[in-house]
Simulated scan of single mutants.
Amino acid sequence: MAQPQSESLRKIREYVEEARGLQEDVVDFDASSTEARLEQTVKELQARVKEQQAALEKLRSQSHVDIETAAYASEDPRLKLQQLAAVTDAYKQLKSTATYLPTQGSVLPALLAARTIQHNVQGIKEAIASTQSQLSTKEATLRREEANLHDANLLTQTMQNRIRRLRSQHEDRSQKTPAQLARELIGAKRAKKENYDADMQRLGEAMNNFINDYLSSMLAAEELGGPVVGDMLNIEDDTLAAGFTKKGRAKSSKKPVSDKTRQRRIDEIWGKKAPLDAEEEEEEEEPPTEAEAADAEMRQLIENLFATLMGPGGGKAYFQLERDSAASRFLIRAKIAQFHPKDARRLRLIDFGRELDD
């Protein structure tokens, strides 16, 4: 047992010494002689070129055959046979000629190998760039196809659910009498109408609060020559009473404006109110402000537009405006109403269940 172990240790030591000796060996490469070897290789190549040129000139001088003519096969069978024989002799002579090889120590093989490697590296780089471009294109196509597949799966699932619901409804209806179906249909219509009425009441209250709290003062400011609705928020009654300059800026409110002046201006812009009854005159203590007048005009305009929409002409009928007002312009900017294509004094609400233009 001890003898095989000592033999293994001896082989390990020999291997270590051999590896250490290989590491300590110096590579036989003299960098200082590289330039001289290059010069020697260039001289050899130039000498070889001169020899080939001299042989070519000698061949031209000894031969009386036109090289350009001899390069193509003759139409004459005899001349063509002579040409083939000459080519055969030339190949036989060249076959016995020794192939030119660079001398020992020449750097020509290294240069040729470097050129080949450089061409291969350049080709690999171009192939990598082309592959990367193709990969990016394929990845984009894959993502697009995955998105389309996802959409198709969603559509398929939705259609399957719809088919199951329709089948279930059909089976349910086939088991009921026409009277039962009629009662269920009437009940569903009533429930839907109640929901619509509740939503309409809720939206109407929200619209009234918006007009009363925010929109009326901004409409009044635009009518008085101030900024467009939305450019100036939280406009006070004192600012409306003082008015605006020609540039649309609020005037100073240090000097109070008389009620008669305000009432005359309100009457000129929004028109005079209808005469009140005795009971209404008692309840009417103060004249309306500019915001209140704009509020009443907006509500009246919306009411007239709704009445026109629900009237005989339906969504194709237009309401005739008495004047161009800030209220009508706001409805146009908000995409709630639209003018007649040929008459800016005619206005109608947009029927969102149809196209904008008939």
Rank of each mutant, 00 (worst) to 15 (best):
A293N: 04
K272A: 00
A327F: 03
Q300H: 10
L347Q: 02
E297L: 15
E279N: 13
F339H: 04
E282V: 09
M298W: 02
D343H: 13
L276E: 15
L276V: 09
Q320Y: 09
P287T: 09
K335C: 07
G315V: 02
F352G: 14
D324N: 13
A337M: 09
A294M: 09
E290T: 04
L276R: 15
A337V: 09
I269E: 05
R299Q: 12
E280D: 14
R348C: 05
R329G: 04
R333Q: 09
F339P: 02
E284M: 08
D277E: 15
D277M: 10
D295S: 13
A293I: 05
E297Y: 10
P287D: 11
A334H: 02
L347M: 07
K272T: 00
L301I: 06
A344D: 14
F330E: 01
G315S: 13
Y318K: 01
G271E: 06
E281I: 05
Q338E: 15
I350V: 11
R346K: 15
I350D: 01
G311V: 08
D277Q: 14
Q320W: 08
I336K: 00
K342Y: 04
I302C: 12
K273L: 07
L347F: 03
T289L: 13
L321F: 07
K335D: 10
Q300F: 05
A274V: 11
L305M: 05
G311Y: 07
E286H: 12
A326C: 12
A337Q: 04
I269F: 02
P312K: 11
G311R: 12
E279G: 10
F339W: 03
D324P: 01
I350Y: 01
Q320K: 14
L349M: 08
E303P: 01
A293H: 03
I302G: 03
T308W: 03
E303K: 10
A274W: 14
L305V: 00
E284K: 13
L347C: 06
Q338V: 15
S328C: 02
A274Y: 14
K316R: 14
Q320V: 06
D324L: 07
A337I: 09
I332M: 07
I302M: 15
M310E: 13
F339E: 02
R323Y: 07
P287G: 08
A293T: 05
G311D: 14
E292Q: 15
E285V: 08
G315Y: 04
G314N: 15
G271I: 00
R299V: 09
P341K: 05
P288V: 06
T308Y: 03
R345Y: 08
E292R: 12
P341S: 13
A291E: 12
A327I: 11
K342S: 14
L305D: 00
H340C: 07
S325W: 04
E283N: 12
W270E: 02
E280C: 04
L347S: 03
I336E: 01
E282G: 06
R348V: 03
L305A: 03
T308H: 02
E297M: 14
E285G: 09
G313V: 04
L305Q: 02
F330P: 00
E283S: 11
E284L: 04
L347Y: 01
R348F: 06
